[in-house]
Simulated scan of single mutants.
Amino acid sequence: MQDTRAGFWIRLGANLLDWLLYLVVSLFLGLFLSETVSNYILDTLNFFYLLLVPAFWYGYTVGKRLLKIRIVKKNGENIGIWTMVKRYILGGLVYASPLIITGLISFTMIGFDVVEFFSTSAPSAELAQSMLGASAIMLIGSLLSFGILITSAFMVGLREDRRSIHDFVAGTYVTYRKPTEKLEEI
């Protein structure tokens, strides 16, 4: 069987279906638990859902299964936990790295003067200026992270191999091929 790679819209649809599942679970937990406990449980469940479910379910999440697409290794084999760690965690760090770096820069700009900000009724003009500068740097980091995410989306939409940045990090791609179908050697 020739391999057909999944493009941008089908992958976005699968992610939206997974998000809808997250929303349903969130509403259900919200009925019985406090917001703090509910958010902690949801974040934990979501982390393990995105990391483990594809590793043990032939590359599927619920959204991907409903749309009949799945994640596979670049060589066409099924993925495992280590592949999902690279795809989800290391790939996520690539997207977030500008925000993380600018956050660290901003924090060092402000330093411990934040204590002064909250302990006095009128913060110094110097502190206000450094906080404004730190906010500007954080905005730049946010825009850079968003730019990387948009670039990755364009990669899926425009590249022939339909691979995104996190696919390159993990050595994966998303396909319509079922786990039982063998990949034809080219």
Rank of each mutant, 00 (worst) to 15 (best):
K73A: 12
F107I: 12
V169Q: 03
T61L: 05
L104T: 09
A122L: 13
A136K: 11
S121Y: 10
I186R: 12
S130H: 09
Y58R: 13
E185I: 15
V72T: 07
H166E: 08
V169P: 01
K73F: 03
Y173M: 07
K74P: 03
G80R: 08
H166V: 08
V62P: 02
I10R: 06
T83A: 06
I148H: 02
F168W: 12
Y176M: 08
N75Q: 09
V94H: 02
S106F: 01
F32T: 11
F28H: 03
I165R: 04
Y95S: 01
K68S: 14
V174R: 00
M131W: 04
Y40I: 15
F56E: 04
K86H: 06
L20D: 01
K182I: 14
R5M: 13
Y88E: 12
Q2E: 14
I79W: 00
R87I: 09
Y58C: 13
N15P: 00
F112A: 14
L104R: 11
F32E: 06
A6L: 04
A6S: 10
G147A: 15
T175L: 05
D161L: 10
T44H: 01
R159Y: 07
P179C: 10
G63A: 06
E185D: 13
Y173K: 05
L127V: 12
L45A: 12
Y173N: 02
L16Y: 09
P98D: 08
K74Y: 10
K73Y: 04
S152K: 05
L21H: 02
L20I: 13
A136E: 11
L42Q: 08
K182Y: 08
L144R: 03
T83H: 06
N46K: 09
A170L: 05
V174Y: 00
L50H: 12
L144Q: 00
L158P: 00
A125V: 14
E116V: 10
S121Q: 15
E35G: 03
I89R: 00
I81F: 15
V25M: 06
S142R: 08
T180H: 13
G157E: 01
